[in-house]
Each structure stands twice: as C-alpha cells, then as structure tokens.
Design a protein around this nucleic acid. Structure first.
Lengths: 155, 155
DNA sequence: CATGAAAATTTCTTACT
DNA sequence: AGTAAGAAATTTTCATG
C-alpha cells in the first residue's frame, strides 16, 4: 500500500491529537469529511493506525516510579526467550518488553507506586523467574522527552 | 484531587480506546453522557489525561528499526544534563530520553528507516555531542510487550 | 477510483432540574 | 447526576469528474 502526502498529514495530525474530529482533520488536510474518514478507516485497516490511546499521567495516577530493567537470560533458545516474554506479559507493572541484541537480552520498562512496590516486583516476579541470569535496574530520575511513535514526514 | 471508581474506569477505557465516544463511555461506566463528559473534562483539567494519540505502526510507516542507546556523560552538572536533553530534543528520531541513576546517565529510544540512517544519527548527532563520554546501543530484535501508560486498578 | 454534496443518524454540549 | 434540546459531527447514500 502506498501513502500519499494527505495520508501522511492525517497520520501526523492523529498522532499529535488522537481525538481530533474528522471534520477538523478534513479541513486541515484539504478534504471534505467523507473522503477524509474513508482514508482514516483505510489507514486503520492497513494497520498503519493500530489504535488510539489516552496518554495518562503516571505520577498523578499513583505510579511516580519508572524503572528500566536490563535482563540477561541463561539460555537464548527461542523457546526460552518466548517463555520469558510470556512471563513478563502477566506482570501488569511491566509496560514494555523489548528483545535486544548484544549482552542484554531484554529491556523492560516498569512502573511502580513506590520503591517498595518496585522491589516487590523485582524480587518476586523478575529475579527468581526461570532462566534469568541477571537483572540490572535503573531508576528514572526524570523524563526529558517522550514523543509518541514516529516522526511523520509531511514534506 | 481524588479519583473514584468511575474515574478510574473512565481512565482505563480511554487508555485502551482513546476514540471511544462519550456515549459509549458513559454506558460502560454506568452514567449518562453529560456527567461522564464532565468527568473526562475534569480529568483532562487535572492533568490525569495529558492527551490522546494515534498509535502508529512504525514498521509500516518506514521506521522498522528501533534502537536503545545508553548514554554516559563526562559531567553530570545540572546545566550539562540539561544541555544534553536540549540537544536530543532537536533530533526527531530520538523519541524518548530518560535520565537514569547509576552508571548510565540517559537511555534513549531511537527509531530509524534503516541501519544506515541509524548510523548517521549516532555518528552525526549523538557520539560527537558535547559532554558525551560513551554511547552503547542495542538494536531491538522484537517488541514482546508495549502497553500504553500504566495499569489502572478498577477493582 | 476517489472526491464531494446531501441527508440521516448519532454524538456532543449546554441549560435547566 | 439526569433530562431535554439545540448544535455539531459522524456516517451512509448517491452523484460527479
């Protein structure tokens, strides 16, 4: 599928404001509402738009702690990697899990209500998990930049 | 400000589907539309909801490469930390920048169109930046989990 | 084949209770 | 928090280049 300039403009605008009305979106990209809506639906169908999410303030809602955990496993056999992924999928505080190349096998983004809660997750669910060789964690002091998704060239 | 069960339910639903209509939202939380909309506006005002974003598929839109970069600086004086943050803020491919405790000063999430593009960012904008002592990068092989935001207890 | 106009439906939003 | 009403947006249908 090919995305033209109007499609990219739509993507950029909806990434910036996911609740923009279709009428405003249409105006901004220079279309009327119906063809604009059809393009949005097509972008959703094509998988270019995976969904829409409210961006919640973690600290305000009781999760002031964000931690990155670098995890190394003993075995990197595919079934062992998959088993670890399946395990972390069950931990609600683990919001992201990315498999990396190199020494570190996974990087996890974890949120917690306090340090005690973080330690609980670490000691109870992560360090003792099967096949885990090492877990190195770093607390987030502050987040300087957190843009959604990707840069969208509207050139 | 205190959030009750209904507020939390609203937050959970909008985090899951940021374009849910207020009518459907109201039905799901057991209110009629007007008080539900008032709650949503109040949550936005209070900063609990920071915004809404379309979740775009990076690979489909020309950014198949995601890299995590662990950056250490020579000086951790506040002005030098802030200068680095201001610098990465100008690089569109750097989507996230978190200041960490410990050996690593910052973790960056970077997207790129290909390895050449990534190398370009690394060599041109990151490694030679003022005050940068070391940059260790890891390519993302696959992302096993990527939930938005935070767990919302609706108990 | 995508756009646009028009119309029907649904949603949003305000005023009031 | 809910009801009711007016305004606005969404969505379908249909005509056009």
């Amino acid at each position: 599928m090919a995305f033209d300039q109007i499609d990219r403009r739509i993507l950029e605008l909806l990434q910036r404001d996911g609740r923009m009305t279709n009428v405003e979106l249409a105006e901004r990209v220079g279309l009327t509402a119906p063809p604009c809506l059809r393009r949005v639906r097509a972008l959703e169908e094509a998988g270019a738009i995976r969904g829409y999410h409210a961006d919640l303030d973690a600290a305000t809602l009781g999760y002031p702690i964000t931690v990155f955990a670098m995890v190394s496993l003993r075995s990197q056999a595919e079934q062992d990697l998959a088993a670890f992924e399946a395990h972390v999928a069950t931990i609600p505080e683990v919001r992201e899990c990315h498999m990396l190349n190199g020494e570190i096998d996974f990087i996890l983004k974890i949120v917690a209500s306090d340090l005690k809660g973080f330690q609980e997750i670490l000691m109870t669910h992560l360090t003792p998990a099967p096949n885990v060789a090492s877990v190195k964690t770093s607390l987030t002091i502050r987040t300087a930049k957190a843009l959604p998704g990707i840069p969208v060239r509207v050139g």
